[in-house]
Amino acid sequence: MRYPTGHRQRSRDRIIEAAASLFRSRGISNTGIDAVMASVGLTAGGFYAHFKSKQDLIGEVVRKAFAEGEGRLTCNEEDDRAWLETVLRRYMSRSHRDHPDEGCPMTTLLTELPHVHDVVQPIVVEQVSSYAELLEKRLAKGASNARQRALAIIALMVGAVALARVLRGSKLSDEILMAARTVGVSLADR
């Protein structure tokens, strides 16, 4: 049977999209190829026409998730402090906390990514380095410790959302998000 032009790529994109959602909501280790393929109406046997292995798929999912998450790190604020406040408010938000299937892969897959280290680490290093450079440029100009502050802000962002998810439904969850935003902004002034 002959398929229309672009069918293979559309199928691949659907598989990546489904896996991204399933990995974030269920976890990588709790999601098999059968489940991913069934969620897009395909058989597990067809998986290998698109990917060499589950690790190959995981790499694609992480790359896609970071690309989608870049929207949380961009805004049109000219003022550096206002820009940082907006970025922190978007990232460390109830919405991001409550929708792990749509959020940053670091906050949902943090404990699982070391198990697929060889595939994922280069992607994570590239993305975290890129985010650090962006933050570093927007922090107080000329500060000697801007790189350290940028890295601390990234760690604060990821950790706060991950912890807030564990505590979701409690007052403490919201308090953690608010406290982390406040501390993150204060790091811009040092």
Rank of each mutant, 00 (worst) to 15 (best):
G103M: 04
A18K: 09
V166S: 09
V62P: 13
T43W: 11
R89L: 12
T74H: 15
E175Q: 07
T5G: 14
E136G: 03
D79Q: 04
F47M: 07
G59S: 00
A65E: 15
E126P: 06
P114F: 14
D98K: 01
A65Q: 02
D34T: 04
S53P: 09
A132I: 09
E60C: 14
V40P: 15
A146T: 02
A38H: 07
L167F: 06
Q127P: 01
V128T: 06
M92R: 01
R149E: 10
L177P: 10
R10E: 09
T74E: 08
T182E: 12
A152N: 04
F23D: 03
R81G: 09
S144G: 03
R63T: 12
F51Q: 03
S11W: 12
V161Y: 15
L177T: 05
M37F: 03
V185K: 08
V61C: 13
G27D: 07
N30S: 04
S21Y: 11
H7D: 11
V124E: 12
M106A: 14
Q55T: 12
A44Y: 06
I58Q: 09
K64R: 08
P100I: 01
I16N: 12
M157T: 02
R2L: 12
L163A: 08
G184Q: 07
R89H: 07
V120G: 07
S25F: 08
I16G: 10
E102D: 00
G142H: 11
V185C: 12
A180F: 11
T182Y: 12
L172F: 15
L167R: 15
A20T: 06
R149K: 04
V61R: 11
S39H: 05
L57E: 05
R81H: 10
I28D: 03
R138A: 00
D34C: 01
E78P: 04
H99M: 06
V119I: 10
A150D: 05
L88S: 10
L73V: 15
V120P: 01
L187N: 04
Q121L: 15
L187M: 09
A82C: 10
T86G: 05
T74A: 09
K64T: 11
S173T: 02
L110V: 02
M37Q: 05
R14Y: 11
E126G: 07
V119W: 15
A20R: 05
